[in-house]
Simulated scan of single mutants.
Amino acid sequence: MSPAKSDFAAHDVAGEEPTLYRVRLAPHRSLDERGFRMVMLIVGGVSLVCGTAFLLMGAWPVFGVFGLDVLVLYIAFRMSFRSARAREEITVTPSLIEVRKIDPRGAADEARLNPLWTRLDKEFHEDYGLQRLSLTSRGAPVVVGGFLHTQQREELAQGLDLALAQAKRGVVRSEL
């Protein structure tokens, strides 16, 4: 994840509303494409060598099972890489909270909330920390940061807490 950018009180264009908080969230994957190819080559090579040894001993069904394991591992990694394409973009201004969720297929779902009527709900687990984070307005929760680790979710909660507090206090604008 690592919030891509957090901007507090940044002004976009003169006369427009300041952006109190902006973050773009993405799931973390520790293995990149190059690492994936390396893992698949090693697993495939070991599978081929072991499978060939069993094939030479006459246990030909074992050879197929080794190939099946490699196929299942390949499919699991591909599914993981596909789910990593999900994104969340959260922008808080004094009059609007905009949450945009983009699923792995690229379909976007947007929620627009009034920061004055929105509260940040946090569900804690005694042993594991912050487990769920949602912005709730008029009884309708919008879950944010669902794919983040606990520490990252806590950082997101701090940023949103500060931005909501600032939006509820009001933003002082100076006329030049």
Score class of each variant (00 low, 15 high):
46 V>H: 00
22 R>H: 10
32 D>T: 10
155 E>F: 03
91 T>R: 07
137 S>C: 11
84 A>H: 10
38 M>E: 03
123 E>I: 11
54 F>H: 13
160 L>H: 01
27 P>S: 09
122 K>S: 11
127 D>E: 15
145 G>A: 08
45 G>I: 00
60 W>F: 11
111 A>N: 04
85 R>C: 09
22 R>A: 11
165 A>I: 09
79 M>V: 15
153 R>K: 04
100 R>F: 01
39 V>R: 01
49 V>W: 03
74 Y>W: 15
6 S>C: 07
69 D>F: 13
135 L>G: 02
38 M>V: 10
101 K>R: 14
141 P>Y: 03
149 H>M: 11
24 R>L: 09
165 A>H: 10
52 T>W: 08
18 P>R: 12
148 L>G: 07
1 M>C: 14
17 E>Y: 03
121 D>Q: 06
60 W>S: 08
47 S>P: 07
154 E>R: 06
86 A>T: 14
114 N>W: 00
106 G>C: 03
83 S>D: 15
171 V>W: 09
74 Y>T: 15
82 R>D: 15
47 S>T: 06
67 G>E: 09
11 H>C: 09
50 C>F: 12
3 P>K: 11
62 V>T: 11
126 E>W: 06
11 H>M: 12
146 G>S: 09
59 A>N: 09
9 A>K: 06
59 A>F: 09
165 A>S: 15
175 E>A: 15
135 L>R: 01
161 D>C: 02
43 V>A: 03
143 V>K: 05
120 L>G: 00
91 T>K: 05
66 F>R: 04
23 V>W: 02
96 L>A: 09
121 D>Y: 04
104 P>Y: 06
101 K>W: 05
159 G>D: 01
120 L>E: 00
102 I>W: 01
1 M>F: 08
29 R>M: 10
16 E>Y: 09
42 I>C: 04
166 Q>V: 07
121 D>I: 03
33 E>P: 02
159 G>A: 03
163 A>Y: 01
50 C>Q: 03
70 V>A: 08
120 L>D: 03
153 R>E: 02
129 G>R: 08
65 V>Y: 13
126 E>D: 14
21 Y>S: 02
29 R>F: 08
131 Q>H: 07
111 A>Y: 00
18 P>I: 11
114 N>F: 00
161 D>I: 00
59 A>C: 04
166 Q>I: 04
11 H>S: 14
65 V>L: 14
27 P>K: 02
156 L>A: 02
144 V>G: 04
56 L>S: 13
33 E>Y: 05
132 R>K: 15
153 R>I: 00
110 E>D: 15
73 L>G: 08
